[in-house]
Write a protein that binds this DNA or RNA. Structure first.
Lengths: 285, 285
DNA sequence: TTTTTATTGTCCGATTATCGAACATATGAT
DNA sequence: ATCATATGTTCGATAATCGGACAATAAAAA
């Protein structure tokens, strides 16, 4: 007998409530109310947590790293990583685990859907030629805007590193504020409650009243212009992509140094083209 | 007492071996040999299977659809889908489940990694301006080439619907054959064994000897040119992206109607620029 | 080198989360 | 109305997961 388990302690599903949703704001509140806890698969949740810790800044991690970040038991993380490795979603090079291109298979169904992959992207590219700006198509995900399609225009512009999958705050960017402005009212209320507006620059609107004011303005104008609020010297323009019914699908945005947007006429022209582009995309969705 | 379980039968882990890897060729053979089956998490595997059935052609499905496709028990699929729904990775609109933008969080760590998102994409865009062609960056995943970055050049070109996450066969495309040609020898052998070359057009090389011949030619030339083999009237050009050490990272490719590649000089020029682009990308990886 | 520290690998009993047949119900087509 | 199909729900059986404990290994410090 080698193992001497004196104070063996099996802590049961307590963590299931306290720990699984990485940040509570992300979990749809209505869901957690209606869905009873036993209807869900805890192991799968943990696995998804493990996958989700790989982000832009954490590209490769050790088992322990991931265990710390996810607050999961190390041996559990290990088993999940081995599972991922066996399925070729991750690879391990001297103890550092990283995602493989196989991971795109999980998102592939979304990215390559007819709507986005096949139709939206070409339209974006088309208009980016006309407007001579890099156009992004973002959708609402929790309290963030997510780029789901992107037409790189000016190479200098995308050096900021925004690509498909990039996430932006809703309150400080034009594309985000557009989403916030044109989303259905009750969702807007909910989001406004949940977000805590961080000041990216001294210009960032952090007071919720101010933000609401800006949203109202955008709603009446049909577009949103944000200057210096996410990055100083940078202006962004956003327009909504809506169904005929008015329901929000997403938003288009262009970004550039302030001077590009200073001329009223040019701005107006860009806006109109962007609106046209949004209509084209809405039409095929 | 309502329930009358006469012939209750609990079929245990038999499926774990027989059914989990959706197609066996995809599972790294060495893995399944070294990794014992109890070191992996079966529930997580099933969850990943469920996510993976969402692809370009199956964008929204019912629980039963997914159960059939994954060959998993319906109630199991249901539980997994509810888990995904609770975590906002899928949404359900009148019984049809579909992926949400949240899914990009799983792939985000890959797409936005410094290498690909921040550096590679701008370089691609840059060179696509110079070459005046849409350039794609693909990596090897199993027996397919996966687009991990893409610079849409000519809008007409990408109407084919290839975007990030798209998958191409290795044997019938230039970018795929480039990967196959420049990958390490034993991996090449392995892949050649596993693939069964489908004839996409009458021109497609389906005889493995012929393919090997073509691979050798590409290896000596340093690039790969494939005409009419994936789609008639279409030519594609591929060059490898390699570390200084020679290890393959991925491949760049451009695609277009045959006439674009017919002029020897223009072709040579495009090739050289593409090689240059590949070197730039290799340098920052 | 040796010591220390951190990370990883492995074991295996305890126990719970998962499984899935069975039944009930809802939906939709003919 | 009838049939067919999809979904919701239950609950006992049990197999998969959990995780503390220890060993082995690697990395860092003395």
């Amino acid at each position: 007998m080698i193992y001497n388990r004196t104070n063996f302690c099996y802590t049961p599903k307590t963590w299931a409530i306290s720990q699984v949703p990485q940040n509570l704001s992300e979990v749809n509140v209505r869901m957690s109310e209606t869905l009873s806890d036993k209807e869900i698969s805890l192991t799968f949740m943990k696995g998804l947590q493990v996958l989700a810790v790989f982000d832009a800044t954490n590209r490769e991690m050790t088992i322990s790293d991931i265990a710390k970040k996810t607050k999961l038991n190390r041996t559990v993380v290990r088993r999940l990583l081995l599972t991922l490795e066996m399925m070729n979603y991750v690879e391990c090079r001297n103890r550092l685990y990283r995602l493989t291109p196989r991971i795109l298979r999980l998102a592939g169904g979304f990215l390559q859907s007819r709507e986005i992959g096949k139709y939206a992207t070409p339209i974006l590219t088309n208009y980016s030629r006309i407007i001579r700006e890099s156009i992004s198509f973002a959708m609402l995900d929790g309290d963030e805007a997510v780029y789901v399609a992107h037409s790189p225009g000016d190479p200098a512009m995308i050096t900021m590193g925004f690509t498909v999958g990039s996430r932006l705050p809703l309150h400080a960017t034009a594309i985000g504020r557009t989403l916030l402005s044109f989303v259905e009212q009750n969702k807007q209320q909910e989001l406004l409650k949940s977000i805590s507006p961080r000041a990216y620059t001294p210009c960032t609107l952090t007071d919720k009243e101010d933000i609401i004011e800006s949203l109202k303005e955008s709603a009446s104008l049909g577009y949103c212009l944000v200057q210096d609020e996410f990055e100083e010297g940078v202006t962004s323009l956003g327009v909504p992509v809506q169904h005929e019914s008015g329901t929000l699908i997403g938003a288009l945005g262009i970004v550039g140094p302030n001077p590009r947007f200073s001329d009223k006429e040019i701005l107006e022209n860009k806006k109109e083209l962007l609106v046209e582009c949004a209509a084209s995309i809405a039409a095929i969705l």
